[in-house]
């Protein structure tokens, strides 16, 4: 590659590209409307009666996508390199434990040091541990990117429910925000909720915490 080509590649890193808007919900809504219209049309034809009648920002998408892990409410993709990551931002607005719109699950039933509403769910802060809980729809709603070779990613079982363990630094995308750096994490389904735990612990310790929520 010539110097000019290298400069052009470098230029891509400096382009002012707005944060990608979350598209999943909009696309889902449009596809749902289409399915609905098709059902109505089918009904109209059958009866002979004419009756006719949608969050996440993800810059840094140039890396190749190599593998997927997914469960309801979350997707983990393995890429050849991570996008530029922003430092942590505030977790959200502090609230009382009982103010959440659903009953928050607590590890060992222990009360957190802080509860915050943000990113489409609730953050629970414990010493050395962050828990994020949200009600997931049928589609994927949080995205994580992990770099190939430097990160362990595997499916795990949390008391019969599916989960994904990510054993190293990765990029975390939450609705409407830039990718941020995240450490060891476990994401798992628990009834209608999807939970994400982040702590500098081993996989087995993370699983033990996950199994203790109630």
């Amino acid at each position: 590659m010539t110097d000019l080509e290298l400069e052009l590649r470098d230029l891509g890193e400096y382009l002012d590209v707005p944060t990608a808007p979350p598209l999943v919900h909009a696309v889902r809504a449009r596809l749902d409307r289409r399915r609905h219209r098709r059902r109505l049309l089918a009904l109209a034809l059958a009866t002979g009666v004419a009756a006719l009648a949608v969050a996440f920002a993800v810059p840094g998408s140039r890396a190749s996508l190599l593998r997927f892990f997914h469960l309801r409410g979350a997707v983990v993709t393995i890429v050849d390199r991570l996008p530029p990551l922003t430092p942590r931002r505030p977790l959200g607005a502090p609230i009382a434990l009982g103010q959440a719109s659903f009953r928050l699950l607590l590890p060992d039933g222990r009360r957190p040091e802080g509860v915050y509403r943000g990113d489409g769910g609730y953050w629970l802060r414990y010493p050395g541990l962050l828990l994020f809980e949200f009600k997931s729809g049928v589609g994927a709603e949080i995205l994580k990117k992990a770099a190939r070779g430097t990160t362990d990613v595997e499916y795990v079982n949390v008391d019969g429910e599916p989960g994904i363990w990510i054993g190293a630094r990765h990029a975390l995308y939450l609705p409407g925000g830039p990718p941020r750096a995240a450490g060891h994490s476990l994401i798992w389904q628990h009834g209608p909720l999807t939970l994400r735990l982040e702590a500098a612990v081993t996989r087995d310790r993370a699983l033990a915490v996950a199994r203790s929520v109630r």
Partner: peptide
């Protein structure tokens, strides 16, 4: 939707 999520930033 997994594909959309994975490719939305590339597409955008």
């Amino acid at each position: 939707e997994t594909l959309v999520l994975a490719y939305q930033s590339l597409a955008f």
